[in-house]
Computed example of a mutant assay.
Amino acid sequence: MDKRWRGIGVLAAALFAVNVVARLIIHFGFEGDDTAADRVSLGMFVVIGLILAGVAVVWGRRRPLGAWEADTAAAVAIALLLTVLLGPLLVGDSPFAGGAGTFFAQIWLYLGATGVGTLIGYLVLTALGRDHRSQTLKRYAEAKAAKPRKVVRR
């Protein structure tokens, strides 16, 4: 159980760290430039999606979908709370400084990026036949084919 929570914590910390780096780049490098800030934010969402695609590939090979998806959802929820509530405080803003629309838009964008990243990773894994279920079915088929047929006399 401890190992499971460690994985969730590491993933949540990695997702939050990507957000912190993006916020610091925007704060120190592109303070008044909204176009550059939007590009950095887009890059942040792409990196978060790629991280979750990688996690889906690695965890999807070893464990059933229900187990690793719950862990991924928990890590995303923790990282989302940290990103939305604690992230703005690191650069001197309030979480609600941009208004309710900006606050909820950030939540929806974050959930969209994480959902798309996870989905792409799992679909690639499934298409290649490397996911846990495909491997289990492959081992079952090989075990059934390896046993000789029982001769029935009548």
Rank of each mutant, 00 (worst) to 15 (best):
S41N: 11
L50S: 09
D34I: 12
I25L: 08
V76G: 03
A74V: 15
F45V: 02
A53L: 05
W68Y: 11
A100I: 14
L81P: 00
A53F: 04
W59T: 01
W68I: 03
A53P: 02
N19G: 15
L81E: 11
L80F: 13
L82I: 14
V55I: 12
P88A: 07
G99P: 02
L85V: 12
A36R: 12
F103Y: 13
R23E: 15
P95N: 09
H27T: 09
A74Q: 10
H27V: 06
L24T: 15
S94F: 12
I48T: 08
P64V: 03
F30H: 10
R63P: 02
V58L: 11
L85I: 13
A22L: 08
A100G: 09
G87S: 07
A75L: 00
D34C: 06
T72Y: 01
I51M: 03
V40G: 04
F28Y: 15
V58Y: 11
G66T: 14
G49R: 04
A79F: 00
A97Q: 13
V84T: 11
E31Y: 14
F30R: 09
G99L: 06
H27G: 05
F28D: 13
G43N: 09
G101K: 13
L42N: 12
L42H: 13
A77G: 12
A37K: 09
R61T: 03
A100N: 12
V47H: 06
V47A: 14
R63F: 11
G32L: 12
N19Q: 10
L52Y: 01
I25Y: 06
E69P: 00
A56N: 08
G92P: 00
A36C: 05
V84M: 15
V40Q: 08
A17V: 07
L85N: 10
G98S: 15
D33A: 07
G32W: 12
A17M: 02
A56W: 01
L86D: 13
P95S: 07
G54E: 05
D33C: 04
G98V: 07
A77C: 06
A75H: 04
A37H: 10
V76C: 12
I25P: 00
G32F: 10
I78C: 01
T35I: 14
G92Y: 03
T83L: 07
V58C: 05
M44E: 12
F30V: 11
L52K: 04
L80K: 02
R63Y: 15
G66M: 04
I25Q: 07
A70V: 09
D33E: 15
A100E: 12
G92F: 00
L80H: 05
D38I: 11
F28E: 15
F45S: 02
I51C: 00
G98Q: 14
P64N: 05
L42S: 14
V57R: 06
D93P: 02
F45E: 01
P95R: 07
I48V: 12
D71K: 10
A36Y: 11
G87R: 00
A53S: 05
L65K: 07
A97S: 13
A77K: 03
G87L: 06
P88S: 09
S94H: 11
G92V: 03
V21R: 01
